[in-house]
């Protein structure tokens, strides 16, 4: 007998495994009026930063301000769907991401975000590596893509078929593995900045 058959047969033979508890109603967070404000408020509690922008066109200047205020080089990899913004005019040198997968900064859309926890959802459809590997991750999320909960975000992104990978990112990368003391930027982003766009 294969292990598969043996394991399943053994499990099925166990009448004593107890009655099945009733299915639980899905948990949903208390509704809020402004999902964008909630997202940014929650993101701050996990040491991310963020701001609402009036239009996508405001993003290059905001990125430039952020990098300057952190004394970082004015350069970033920019996802294709944001490459048309006026980066050069804001003094940002656009890096060629595919050729060097580790980048100091990356700007890209997050296809969904979760207000409850201040999280972003990245997926394998948008080549998430640049964002996962960047020291500074600028995530752009449209208001309409902010959902109240993880479950609703999975439902929205999944549709008929889930992408191979979903990455729910809540704040910068961190570790407490050395003396239980929080340090940011273990493997993923050291800094995470969210733009909520119309």
């Amino acid at each position: 007998m294969s292990s598969r058959a043996a394991i399943l047969a053994r499990l099925r033979a166990q009448a004593s495994a107890g009655p099945s508890a009733a299915a639980q109603p899905p948990y949903r967070p208390t509704p809020v009026d402004d999902l964008g404000a909630r997202l940014l408020e929650r993101a701050k509690t996990v040491l991310a930063t963020g701001e609402a922008v009036a239009s996508l066109a405001d993003i290059p200047a905001a990125v430039a301000r952020y990098l300057a205020s952190h004394e970082l080089a004015a350069e970033a990899a920019v996802a294709a769907d944001l490459a048309g913004l006026s980066w050069a005019a804001s003094g940002i040198c656009v890096l060629d991401a595919p050729s060097r997968r580790s980048v100091p900064a990356s700007v890209a859309f997050a296809p969904a975000a979760i207000a409850e926890t201040g999280s972003l959802m990245l997926t394998s459809r948008e080549a998430p590596w640049a964002n996962l590997l960047a020291d500074t991750h600028f995530a752009v999320v449209r208001r309409g893509d902010i959902l109240p909960s993880l479950e609703e975000a999975v439902g929205r992104i999944g549709g008929n078929r889930l992408p191979r990978s979903l990455h729910v990112v809540t704040g910068p990368s961190r570790t407490g593995d050395i003396e239980q003391t929080l340090e940011l930027g273990a493997h993923g982003a050291v800094r995470l900045h969210i733009f909520v766009a119309p």
């Binding site: 996990v46 926890t117 999280s119 993880l150 999975v154 078929r161 889930l162 992408p163 191979r164 990978s165 979903l166 990455h167 729910v168 990112v169 809540t170 704040g171 910068p172 990368s173 961190r174 993923g188």
Partner: peptide, 9 residues
């Protein structure tokens, strides 16, 4: 929430 929740399908 954990900083990264990774869902693989």
């Amino acid at each position: 929430m954990s900083s990264y929740v990774t869902c693989l399908t």
